[in-house]
Simulated scan of single mutants.
Amino acid sequence: MWVETLTNSKGTRYKYCERYELPNGDTRKVSITLNSNSTYAHKQASIELQNKIKDVIKELHLDPNITMYKVAQLWLEHTEPTVKISTHINHSLHVKKIFTYIDTGIPLVKVTPIMIENMVHSVYYKENLSYYYAKSILTTVRAIFRHAKRRRIIQDIHEIEDINVKKKPFTHTEIAKKQNKFLDAVELKSVLAQLTKLAPRIALLIEFMSLTGLRIGELLALRYCDYDTKKATINVNGTLQYFYKNGSDIKRGTPKNIYSIRDIALDNRCVKILNTIITDNKRQSLWFKGYNEQGYIFTAKRGSPYDMQYINKLLKQVHIDGKHLTTHIFRHTHISMLAELGIPLKAIMQRVGHNDPATTLSIYTHVTQHMKDDIVEKLNSRNR
């Protein structure tokens, strides 16, 4: 500790200073100012400076033995108010996955880059989970370490930042899987026919998805006020989010991103579907005393929006050779329909609410068999 003398028109004061080292190696300076330079003042200053140092370390969570798990929890607490509930849930699931590989008791400073590399390697190459999932796990790890650096828990994280996931070469199975992310006209017709026997309203819902390219959350969030009957358009401005497995707790949230907010022009079939559903809703509201009108269009018998899991459960009862049916395949189907019609890429992106062209191109480039046949037919016609 050292003392600096401060003199001004109001008199002389004494600044007691001390430089100290944080557990992460950083050095800082702390000071207090007193009116005395006596022995008692020195003792008092020493006590107050030590208390200040303890407060700083406590505030920054600078325990040299703080675990990576503890830092991950601090990061989750810090980011929760700044992100959507669905994003926070995903963050929490990623953290849970990370600590199936990393010991929850290991101090952050002892977590090495090779530990993180091995974890990502196992997730991607051994568990055979998707490349994008492995990348999201790595992104979460980086976020945790960046948070630790901002809190001065650790100084250098460049080796963590340098870790990457090397994409595996495509196998024939994966290529076939990518090419089966949409349905052709015959397959779609079969799906709708099978669904009509199981649940006619769900069949109409699925058909509407395939004709508009809506995400399932966007479709379920559609309200009567979003439907312009005169212009035959719908305004996509929200998404329905489910936070529990049984789908009992739902909330209408904001769309995926700013590009997801859009107006979609409806063809005659879409208009007919909406009018049919709306008429049926009015009938059900009269028949069921417990009907709870909430303003949504695609609802179950009691007026609440359909549960996503219920829809996907029904789709599992529908069989199309070589196709894995989820609600998202009908969004891809719509993109493939537009590609087959020769609609420009930019127009497709706007209609489905895509920002990144690569997202649309991943489906756009997987041309349908009809387009392939059309190419051959046109080439043959040139040689006649």
Rank of each mutant, 00 (worst) to 15 (best):
P64H: 08
I66M: 07
T82V: 04
V83C: 01
Y40D: 12
V71F: 06
L60W: 08
K29M: 04
Y40K: 09
L62I: 07
Q73F: 08
K70R: 15
K52S: 04
K54M: 09
N51V: 12
D63I: 02
H78V: 01
L49F: 04
N37S: 14
K70C: 08
N65M: 09
V30C: 04
K52V: 03
H42P: 08
P81K: 05
T82A: 06
E48Y: 05
L62Q: 14
E80D: 08
L74V: 04
V83H: 00
V71M: 03
V56W: 00
Y40W: 06
V83Q: 01
L74I: 13
T39N: 14
S38F: 01
K52R: 07
L62D: 07
E80W: 01
S46K: 15
V83F: 00
T67L: 05
T79Y: 06
Q44V: 14
S38Y: 03
S46R: 15
I66D: 00
I32P: 02
K70I: 06
P81E: 09
T33V: 15
V71T: 11
L76F: 04
I57R: 02
P81G: 08
T67D: 01
Q73E: 14
T33E: 04
D55W: 06
K43D: 13
S36E: 12
A41S: 10
Y69L: 07
I66Y: 00
L76C: 04
T33N: 07
S31M: 13
M68V: 07
K54W: 14
D63C: 05
V56N: 06
M68Y: 12
I47V: 13
E77I: 10
E48F: 05
L49M: 03
L34F: 07
R28C: 03
K70D: 08
I32V: 14
Y40E: 13
E59Y: 13
N37F: 10
S38R: 03
K58A: 12
Q73T: 07
L62F: 01
A45S: 06
E59A: 15
E59I: 06
I53G: 02
V30F: 02
Q73N: 14
L62V: 03
T33H: 06
K70Y: 13
T67P: 00
T67E: 02
A45G: 09
Y69M: 11
E48L: 11
K29H: 09
D63Y: 04
N35W: 05
M68G: 12
S31N: 13
S31F: 15
S36F: 03
E77T: 07
L49G: 03
E48V: 09
N35K: 15
